Amino acid sequence: EEKRQVKQVAKEKLLEQSPNSKVQVRRVQKQGNTIRVELELRTNGKKENYTVEVERQGNTWTVKRITRT
């Protein structure tokens, strides 16, 4: 359940930055209360990979860091 929520948060964050792209989740890793989500962003056939680190704060998820990989 929490992985599902985190995927959603990570996707939304990337789509905010580039709204007309397609996002696909590649991998989800958990480390303590930080969850790392690896995503693939496609814009006009151009692929970019991103890693989004999401942290739990109380009962909400906040995006800590977005890295292009």
Rank of each mutant, 00 (worst) to 15 (best):
E1T: 08
E1I: 06
E1R: 06
E1H: 08
E1Y: 08
E1A: 08
E1M: 06
E1N: 07
E2K: 03
E2N: 04
E2D: 12
E2I: 12
E2L: 12
E2H: 05
E2M: 12
K3I: 15
K3Y: 15
K3A: 15
K3M: 15
R4T: 08
R4A: 11
R4C: 07
R4L: 09
Q5Y: 10
Q5A: 13
Q5G: 09
Q5T: 11
Q5E: 10
V6R: 00
V6P: 05
V6Y: 05
V6W: 11
K7Y: 14
K7L: 15
K7N: 05
K7A: 15
Q8A: 08
Q8P: 02
Q8S: 04
Q8W: 04
Q8E: 13
V9T: 04
V9G: 01
K11D: 01
K11S: 12
K11F: 05
E12G: 03
E12V: 03
K13E: 02
K13L: 08
K13C: 07
L14F: 05
L14G: 02
L14C: 04
L15W: 03
L15Y: 03
L15H: 03
L15S: 03
L15C: 03
L15G: 02
E16W: 02
E16F: 03
E16S: 06
E16I: 04
E16V: 03
E16T: 07
E16N: 04
Q17I: 15
Q17G: 07
S18H: 15
S18C: 12
P19K: 04
P19S: 02
P19N: 02
P19G: 03
P19I: 02
P19H: 04
P19F: 03
P19L: 02
P19W: 01
N20W: 02
N20Y: 06
S21D: 02
S21P: 02
K22M: 09
K22Y: 09
V23I: 07
V23P: 03
V23W: 01
V23C: 04
V23G: 01
Q24M: 14
Q24C: 08
Q24F: 14
V25G: 00
V25P: 02
V25H: 02
V25D: 00
V25E: 01
V25N: 02
V25I: 08
R26K: 13
R26F: 10
R26C: 06
R27A: 11
R27D: 08
R27E: 06
V28I: 12
V28G: 01
V28H: 02
V28S: 03
V28P: 01
Q29C: 10
Q29H: 14
Q29N: 12
Q29I: 15
Q29Y: 12
K30H: 14
K30W: 15
Q31E: 14
Q31Y: 14
Q31V: 14
Q31T: 14
Q31I: 12
Q31N: 13
G32A: 06
G32H: 05
N33C: 05
N33P: 10
T34V: 13
T34M: 11
T34N: 08
T34P: 03
I35E: 02
I35A: 13
I35K: 01
I35T: 14
I35M: 14
R36Y: 15
V37C: 04
V37Q: 00
V37H: 00
E38V: 11
E38F: 15
E38G: 07
E38I: 11
E38R: 09
E38Q: 09
L39N: 00
L39E: 00
L39T: 04
L39I: 10
L39W: 01
L39Y: 03
E40W: 09
E40H: 10
E40M: 12
E40N: 06
L41F: 02
L41Q: 05
L41S: 10
L41I: 05
L41E: 02
R42S: 12
R42L: 12
R42M: 09
T43L: 10
T43W: 05
N44V: 08
N44S: 11
N44E: 13
N44H: 12
N44D: 12
G45T: 09
G45Q: 11
G45L: 08
G45F: 13
G45P: 02
K46W: 11
K46E: 09
K46T: 11
K47R: 12
K47S: 11
K47E: 06
K47Y: 08
K47W: 06
K47V: 12
E48N: 03
E48S: 08
E48I: 04
E48T: 05
N49C: 09
N49L: 11
Y50E: 00
Y50S: 01
Y50A: 07
T51P: 00
T51Y: 12
T51G: 04
V52E: 00
V52T: 01
E53V: 09
E53I: 12
E53T: 08
V54W: 01
V54D: 00
V54F: 10
V54M: 07
V54R: 00
E55T: 08
E55F: 06
E55H: 09
R56Y: 05
R56D: 03
R56A: 07
R56C: 07
Q57Y: 12
Q57L: 11
Q57F: 10
G58M: 08
G58I: 05
N59V: 10
T60D: 14
T60H: 11
T60K: 08
T60E: 14
T60R: 07
W61P: 02
W61S: 02
W61V: 04
W61Y: 11
W61N: 01
W61Q: 02
W61G: 01
T62I: 12
V63Q: 00
V63D: 00
K64Y: 08
K64M: 13
K64F: 09
K64N: 10
K64I: 15
K64L: 14
K64P: 03
R65I: 06
R65C: 07
R65T: 14
T67I: 12
T67G: 06
T67M: 10
T67L: 13
R68M: 14
R68I: 11
R68S: 08
T69L: 10
T69R: 10
T69F: 10
T69H: 13
T69M: 14
T69K: 07
T69S: 09
T69Q: 11
